[in-house]
Design a protein around this nucleic acid. Structure first.
Lengths: 350, 350
DNA sequence: AACGCCAACGTAAGCGCTTGCATTGACCGC
DNA sequence: GCGGTCAATGCAAGCGCTTACGTTGGCGTT
């Protein structure tokens, strides 16, 4: 802490070539003590800690993460893996995770797949080797080879949205969310309820799209409605995908009066398709999504919303807690909520 | 390269505690040679390099980035800074940047501000100290203090979208893009053209919102139209912001027949506001945005689209080239393109 | 008064790489 | 046939931390 007198030579915020040794010298202690004091270890006398902190501030000391990581084996970095960043759910969960990490002074290492095409590129976990203490995977199902690679990183990992066997999982109850959507449509009098679902390449019981599809099917059958394959239109989880699938669905089943879309982005595509056919969403055909996309309101999209930001935040927080010895819960399920807007309405009289 | 004979003890993909020394031993060379061979330095005989690579693969060697960074002073990591991830432009540019980095075997360190509220939290460049070789800043104007901090990192930095003085810049010609939008509306016969612009806290000549506002104003005046303050409605660059600003604008100036929104998300909010007032976009009032948001099509949003992904990609690529000695161009301007959809139409007959 | 204990700190050996500076031959020209 | 050159490689000193272990001295015990 400088006295403010003119002529102070070394000022805070200087070129970052100040090492721990110089701080030690300035504080009149050993480097070991500086290291301990800087990390707030209890075995340092408070007065000493204060002196070290003062010296560090005075010299503008900034620790070297590489040196620290090399010596300790811990990187204070968490890998964030997602198939794409530009889709709403991923962007939002990643933002939540990044904030949780930043708050704990951890770094977020971003990894998105080279392209969002299907079949997607395989994830090479090796790029994270020796550089992360933990991994958050956002909604991406891993092949056996990818799981093996992930395991070899030998760091805790958590999956958001997708239920990867033998890994902890943060997400929502997809079946229940789908049932909520169907119930809403059913209450409005709809009896022919189509599903614009996840892409066919996601035929995996762990994928959220698959669970939503199952939830839709089960909910229909529980109400004595038919859930035949021609009511189920697979799509990429994008607006474009929803657009195409909806058109295909309505070509096959013109008697459809309501559509449950597996994500808000596909639902928006569905709305686009309806308008293209001269149909008014919520009057001629009802559309409900699942997400809580921030643009849903603009379109008047009825949806079952899920807390995406919080899922990312919580996934990261759990991982950090695990680093402190806490044990990772197998499942962390967040609630969903029905938001009724204008894209759903009473079934037209037959 | 194993011969495939059974009984091979060490197989590729093993626990990552194999160090360069063991590879050296296995290959019968020194660690220095291994280091050089692994990095493909030219001073190693091809046969030696091959032997080293084989040994490394055989042992499942994975380099330690921390050790490499500590010894060389280069981290092979680039910081990606954005005010928020969940907004379309940021998510998309970050994705582009991440892909460029990944392709060059660089890591992307993500930094987003703790919250997207205004006034935003200050960016503490110190969190990037000693851990990145370069920084990409996506559309965020820096205060003097923040610039000072950024400078102290002593690494190259590039700004996307915002024109930070004395820093290289990747972006579009915002004035021209605004002029394109105005021209389109003018051609349709509109004479009272409002602007839903960036938030008031962005009153900075370097901010893209400010430049778009200037472009709008200049384009109106060049056509002999009035561009008074009551036609200019500041908004957060979100759908919610656009919604509120549009309502305010129409309350003030009910004679408005067209709106130029500074981003697609605000434009979507504007459309929402119109519908709320019983007005049909493109018929009663025209709306044009600026971005090329992937959901624009769903809403039939006319827009001046910009290549967001490419801007991120190019920013990262330029930085990597600079690391190889190339010099950073001051300005890299990408073209924009008018996409006419249904949210704009002829001015209603007065 | 002698002893043990423990809080507080120091010593020094790494962590796993990179790189400046030798060193070693092979090959060349005269 | 001998010094010189240069390509290819080895040696070893770090890079800036962390941490196991050793040391010190003040204090409570008996």
């Amino acid at each position: 802490m400088s006295t403010g007198s003119p002529g102070d030579i070394p000022t805070a915020g200087h070129p970052n070539n100040v090492s721990i040794d110089e701080v030690a010298k300035a504080a009149g202690v050993s480097t070991a003590t500086v290291s301990r004091a800087l990390r707030g270890l209890p075995s340092v006398k408070p007065a000493t800690t204060a002196a070290v902190l003062a010296a560090a501030a005075q010299l503008g000391y900034v620790p070297s993460p590489s040196a620290s990581a090399l010596a300790s084996g811990r990187t204070r970095t968490v890998g964030l893996v997602a198939p794409a960043i530009s889709r709403w759910f991923f962007a939002t969960t990643l933002e939540g995770a990044e904030h949780a990490l930043r708050a704990a002074n951890y770094d977020a290492l971003l990894y998105s797949l080279p392209d969002s095409q299907l079949p997607r590129k395989t994830f090479e976990a090796e790029v994270l080797a020796r550089r992360v203490d933990a991994v958050v995977v956002a909604s991406m199902f891993f092949s056996a080879a990818e799981v093996t690679q992930l395991r070899q990183l030998a760091v805790p990992a958590i999956f958001i949205s997708v239920k990867q066997p033998d890994f902890p999982h943060v997400g929502i109850d997809d079946e229940a969310a789908a049932a909520t959507a169907v119930q809403h449509l059913f209450d409005l009098g709809h009896r022919v309820i189509g599903h614009v679902s996840g892409s066919a390449s996601d035929r995996n019981p762990a994928a959220p799209t698959m669970r939503r599809r199952n939830g839709w099917r089960a909910a229909l059958r529980a109400r004595g409605l038919s859930a035949t394959a021609d009511l189920d239109a697979p799509a990429d989880m994008t607006a474009e995908g929803g657009f195409g699938a909806t058109n295909a669905l309505l070509d096959r089943r013109p008697d459809t009066t309501a559509i449950f879309a597996a994500s808000d982005e596909t639902a928006m595509g569905a709305i686009h398709a309806l308008r293209g056919r001269g149909l008014e969403p919520g009057r001629d055909i009802s559309v409900i999504g699942l997400d809580g996309h921030n643009l849903g309101q603009v379109l008047g999209l009825t949806t079952v919303s899920q807390p995406a930001y919080q899922q990312g935040f919580e996934a990261a927080r759990l991982l950090l807690a695990a680093a402190d010895g806490a044990l990772l819960p197998d499942q962390t399920i967040f609630p969903t909520e029905l938001s009724v807007r204008t894209s759903t309405g009473p079934a037209p009289a037959a």
